Simulated assay, not measured.
Amino acid sequence: SKVANSNFFQQNMKHCIPIFNPLIFSGIFMVLGALSLIVGVAFIASSNNILLTSPIIHENSINQQVHTIEINKNQINPNKHLGIMYQIDNFHQNVRSYVAQFDVTQWSSRNFSSIMVDKYCRKTQNISQVPDHPCGLIYQTRVTDDYIIGTNNLNFTLNNNILRHSDTVSNILFGEAFKQMPNWQRTAEWMRPSPFAKVTKIYGFVDQKDLITEFNQQLEIFNLTIYSQGEHKGEGIDGKPLVYSEYRKVVLFQTGMLGGKQETYAFGLISVIFGCISLGIMLLFIGIHFVKMKKGVDKKIKEWVVE
């Protein structure tokens, strides 16, 4: 047939009609589903071998508290770092960051006094009001607890090198003044607001040599003692002391290929769900194939090919 207002003719060619074969798609989704299930089950199984202890409650007190924990040796991998982190429920640290409660330019400065802000991050012309530490509520509400972990024979050396390597070698975010503060990496870890209601921060890692030494001396049960001390309070709006959290949860953990126990399990679970959905789509395409066969569509296509 001739197209209107055109010198060209249009014709339908039977052999150029695409052949829709549901079996091809069912095969693709079968492979995706099978691989996802294999990967998911593998990561879920590996998450069982990653250490994550039940939380130990540290009450808000300057008095030292002693906590004893027993861990089976098969739960600990001595060749991986053993870390300690603390958690605060319903703290909503990210909400505090919406107010002007930190100054990034102050973090990256060579000298805190070069940024003319007071302790509330407000601009000031009075040099005596400029603090010698980061300004704002995020810094003021930082956790200053002390944690010691060890066995009956040895108190482990805790390595506070907990930040990304880029943060330690670069001054783009944390400058020279920030890095001169005591335990600056723990402070920097706190200064990154958590997006969740629960705040989870790393405190430090056990020295690898100490862990291997004690691991070889222990029997089937790895007995650990955690000493915690510190209060989480500061100056309130009216100048009166304000308690920020009544207690902290202390957790021991190790990491795997994708992170901690919960992250590895979550990735495995998502892979299993994706695999099940893929296999479900595979069954759907197989059903479509048999429906089309029943209606004789494939038979008609074969007749076109013969012609």
Score class of each variant (00 low, 15 high):
P182Y: 08
M85H: 15
I24K: 10
E307C: 04
F196I: 03
D167R: 07
C16L: 09
T144R: 11
C16M: 06
Q217T: 02
N90I: 06
P22C: 12
Y227V: 00
F222P: 02
I71Y: 04
D103P: 00
V99F: 13
V39L: 14
K294F: 12
I28G: 00
F25H: 12
W190P: 00
N223W: 02
V39Q: 05
L32W: 12
G239D: 10
L158E: 00
A188V: 06
N126Q: 07
S271H: 04
L224G: 06
S271K: 03
G150R: 06
G268I: 09
L211W: 02
A266S: 15
D167S: 15
G260T: 02
H15A: 08
S166D: 08
F196E: 08
F274C: 15
S6F: 13
P195T: 05
S108T: 09
N21K: 12
N79E: 11
I286K: 05
K261E: 08
D145I: 06
F205S: 01
K201S: 03
V291H: 13
Q217S: 11
F285D: 00
E303H: 12
K302E: 11
L242E: 12
I172W: 07
I38Y: 05
K80P: 02
K198C: 03
S26V: 03
N183Y: 15
K73L: 06
H92G: 03
N155A: 07
G296Y: 09
K179Q: 11
Q93H: 01
F8Y: 10
V31M: 07
A34V: 12
M191L: 15
V31F: 08
I38W: 02
L52A: 04
F25L: 14
I237Q: 14
H232W: 15
Q64T: 05
A177G: 02
Q10H: 10
L154H: 14
K299S: 04
L269H: 01
R96S: 04
I288W: 03
T255M: 15
N126W: 00
E214I: 03
G280Y: 06
Q140M: 11
K292R: 15
I38E: 02
A42C: 07
R96F: 13
N48S: 15
F290W: 13
S194G: 03
L224E: 01
I17N: 09
H165G: 04
P22Q: 12
